[in-house]
Design a protein around this nucleic acid. Structure first.
Lengths: 271, 271
DNA sequence: TAGAATGTATCGTCTAGCGATACTCTTGTA
DNA sequence: TACAAGAGTATCGCTAGACGATACATTCTA
């Protein structure tokens, strides 16, 4: 079985109860977040009971939670399917998240220039443990739906940007991340072994950028370079993605490799 | 004084306390949301006391709130400036918001095609009372930072997309929305009177799309068309934005007007 | 060195959220 | 038409757990 491209992240309701001994832990806040996060597992508007189930909160509690989150605009009703959906206010909060991140501010003009010169899809993603979260997206000609959305996440172990990030970590940590990753393949070509991952990492370490084909989408070729902070730790990546119908891997790399690396260097912080 | 382009939305802490008589209202959830929303008013990492002040929550309560939101990944520390920032998990939640919206799914291929044909900036925004929230962005050559970010909001009364939305509402409601809007001008050309707004609305009603210049950014020309639901109520808009340095308003409209309207019709839901 | 910020920790009070229960409506099926 | 299963809603007593006051350790600034 291959993975649903919506690739919803797993959420364990049990985890919300495992803070018992922490005197500063606000359980109500955890429940609030749990209810809001229920939608990460959804593929359609959710009913009250579904929210309760997915968030691991009692139906009664979920009822009142939803009631106040409705009043606050964090959740809205979908009149058609009579269910609940996350509210637009979440988007506004996400905006704060993007706006306040200094990396994003530096990156924007550089990515626009990269996009202009390559005419291929350019993305900026932020590293979050086993996954990358897409923060800035500049789609090109033809893209599938999820490839245009902010906030979409992909695993680090099988993406160009991810390998570029891993290349800056010790082997031990790479193995750890690989081990904890959800490794359901996206396509028949999605890599499945640590050996394959390490091969990609070594290559990235050697030439400064990572290159993969068909890992998330068939016929897609992607190149990635890491973004580093002042301490030279990776914090995210830039992705350049094209179609194998238009480029051979060799040509893609020769044509855009150095442009991409320059962009990565410009965004990274030094000293 | 003109408006800061980051244009943070106003948040009134007092409002959070005005639910006293509602038996189903969960105060802790409201506080949680208030703390998370504090960042909407921020322009840099926030300290504990700043969060408390902006969210209208007691310092003690804010302390414990922040503590658990840190544990949940909804907030992170910024080691450099030693403050707090919204966490990447917000982005993941925003993704659910976008992914679950059927409008977005229908819109993506249509907007990509529009972008391909016009080579100008294409945006999709969702209507939220006095404002539009940008949900899908396809930047073109040179854009300022905030014009590339998901979740950014603009007033309806002075934007092309906004006027296109207003055109589908009764005059009475337009006046109401205009009255409640924050009307700090963005540029010297930003419209300030209801008469100007109604003129734009009439024009939009007549030719099916709205056209404005220099309202948010100087030298910017923008055209907008509304997206309608099954009941023909506006739910958002498509924006097409270019530069006055490259196009005259007449030429821009003649060249792209019908393309834009076609896109709007394709995305709107009928019957 | 004093002062004003940070962030952190502790604790008793009592409020406000929990969970059980029961109700109304709508929808689909027999 | 009756019935079951599912929606959303409402009420209420108990007590878990959040509140707010207070105090302290650090760090930065003047």
């Amino acid at each position: 079985m291959f993975r649903d491209l919506n690739g919803v992240s797993t959420f364990d309701p049990a985890e919300a109860d495992e803070f018992g001994d922490d005197p500063l832990f606000v359980r109500a806040a955890a429940r609030t977040v749990a209810v809001l996060s229920a939608f990460e597992l959804a593929s359609k508007p959710l009913s009250l009971s579904e929210i309760a189930k997915l968030s691991g909160v009692e139906r009664s509690a979920a009822q009142r939670m939803v009631h106040t989150l409705l009043a606050l605009g964090m959740i809205v009703r979908d009149d058609e399917d009579r269910g609940y959906l996350p509210g637009k206010r979440i988007l506004t909060m996400a905006y704060s998240c993007l706006r306040l991140d200094p990396v994003m501010q530096r990156a924007t003009p550089i990515l626009l220039e990269l996009r202009r010169r390559t005419r291929e899809r350019v993305d900026l993603s932020l590293w979050d443990d086993t996954r990358l979260i897409y923060a800035l997206r500049m789609p090109s000609k033809h893209e599938i739906f999820t490839a245009t959305l902010t906030g979409n996440t992909v695993p680090v172990y099988c993406t160009a940007g991810g390998l570029a990030v891993l290349a800056h970590l010790p082997d031990q940590q790479i193995a750890d991340i690989f081990g904890r990753s959800d490794r359901t393949p996206f396509t028949p070509e999605t890599m499945t072994s640590l050996e394959q991952v390490m091969k990609g990492v070594e290559r990235a370490r050697h030439c400064g950028h990572a290159l993969v084909t068909g890992q998330i989408l068939r016929h897609e070729i992607a190149m990635g370079v890491a973004i580093l902070d002042t301490a030279s730790h990776p914090i995210g990546a830039i992705h350049l993605a094209g179609s194998l119908d238009e480029h051979s891997p060799e040509e893609f790399e020769a044509k855009f490799g150095s442009l991409l690396q320059q962009a990565g260097t410009s965004i990274s912080v030094f000293g």
